[in-house]
Design a protein around this nucleic acid. Structure first.
Lengths: 245, 245
DNA sequence: CGCGACATTGAAGTCACTCAAGTAAAGTGG
DNA sequence: CCACTTTACTTGAGTGACTTCAATGTCGCG
């Protein structure tokens, strides 16, 4: 049951049947976490790489005086500890946002795969490069986009990322972040996130309640957020996009 | 003459003699660029990966209305187009900051290396992961640190990165960015960068003139900037650090 | 010299923040 | 089943860090 991993890798680059088979043959055990538990990192299996199967998580950094910045939002299909796998060192802070289920793959099996399949290696490497690309886009948001643009941009991004792994339903998708967590993602204050969301709702572009977002006009939202999807490195899919950038 | 590449890879993880030899055997031709030419990307050799040998460059993103965010500062030893190599697609915008010399390595040789040396593959992969780690740290800066903290933090980072590849001289290092470029790095306005630099100078922590920074008290600067060097993933070096975090 | 690029300074403006309440919904315990 | 608590969201008022605009200063260079 690492189909999701294969789907994720193939959303960025094509695989051969042999690679797909090798990936599917990787052993994996399921692990569950409850919502909103920080310090997940300590509870991960050592010498395993984890793939999110369901739910949302995030990486974050706390500054000594209590300021917090959320560094990435992790959705199903995301691999959370490739950096440690490759580079060693300790896992940066990681927290679950919603209830979370993950698949843990033993490092040694993965090492063997890397040695035998350069293409699978590239595919895994790719996911880390896409993550980097997303980080950079967030830099643009936080550095130069206005609050309204930031929120619009983030919603577009999460929508496409979820859609790429089949976790959207039409124009609707789950976003189980509180406004205060969104603030820590976007480099804004909670109060300002609240007002910005109200503005987006009033302008008829989205609805957002009890953790569900609906985008009424993706292309208008993308324009408003100066969003263009290239940085996500999604390959065109066989079935047509429900809504497209 | 890819010694610099080897030095850079070894600053993050140990290599075996065989890997080192394989890396040094990679053919490479030198390419030169003048200072401050944007759209470097178009002038790079197709099907080559480029390593900076001397000088500074940056990746940047322009928004439609002229806002610009600099996404990363590239220093000697940095590899600038691994993403395209692995993931395909086009090079994000790239500009030289100072006169620049680079070494271009043909993709096919690199592919062959990846297929024969998993350890070299990991080392190259590592550099992209370190870049990602730096992007994330910049997110913290722009998202949550004050202007003074941001500048202090950036100076600490550049110093250690240059020092790791032997491009510092004692507490001094080149930083050929204009204040307006620093502003685009830090998500600030030029005017505010100017005032912030003055504050740092007045407090006696640094000097910064004609593109040369001198850090008088690294540890005070690091404290001020909430800097801790872990995210750079630098291995302890054999010779002692001149100044350390 | 005079031009261009960069740095510096002052004044005025604003976007987003902080502080402070208040509302709403959901969970907890007696 | 209803007080009590907790968590999230909403609203208003005042403030401040940083911005924008506009000059002025300084240095190197053709």
């Amino acid at each position: 049951m690492t189909e999701l991993l294969v789907a994720r890798l193939e959303s960025h680059m094509p695989l051969e049947q042999a690679d797909r088979a090798a990936l599917l043959a990787l052993p994996a055990q399921t692990r569950q976490f409850s919502a909103r538990s920080s310090a997940i990192a300590g509870k991960l299996l050592d010498n395993h790489v984890h793939v999110i199967e369901n739910g949302f998580a995030c990486r974050y950094r706390d500054l000594p005086d209590g300021r917090r910045q959320i560094l990435s939002i992790l959705v199903p299909g995301d691999i959370i500890d490739l950096r440690q796998f490759v580079l060693g060192g300790t896992q940066p802070f990681l927290a679950s946002i919603s209830p979370l289920s993950m698949r843990a793959i033993p490092n040694d099996h993965l090492f063997r795969l890397l040695e035998t399949s350069p293409r699978a290696t590239r595919a895994l490497w790719s996911t880390t490069l896409v993550e980097e690309s997303i980080s950079r886009e967030w830099l643009v948001s936080i550095g130069k986009r206005s609050a309204l643009e930031r929120v619009a941009h983030l919603l577009c991004e999460i929508y496409l990322r979820l859609d790429a792994v089949g976790h959207s339903s039409g124009p609707r998708f789950p976003l189980p972040l509180t406004q205060s967590e969104l603030a820590d993602v976007l480099g804004l204050s909670t109060v300002h996130v609240n007002r910005t969301l109200q503005e987006l709702r009033k302008s008829g572009l989205i609805s957002f309640q009890s953790g569900i977002v609906e985008i009424f006009d993706f292309s208008a939202l993308a324009t408003l957020g100066l969003f263009s999807s290239g940085y996500l490195h999604l390959r065109a899919r066989s079935k047509p996009q429900p809504i497209s950038a």
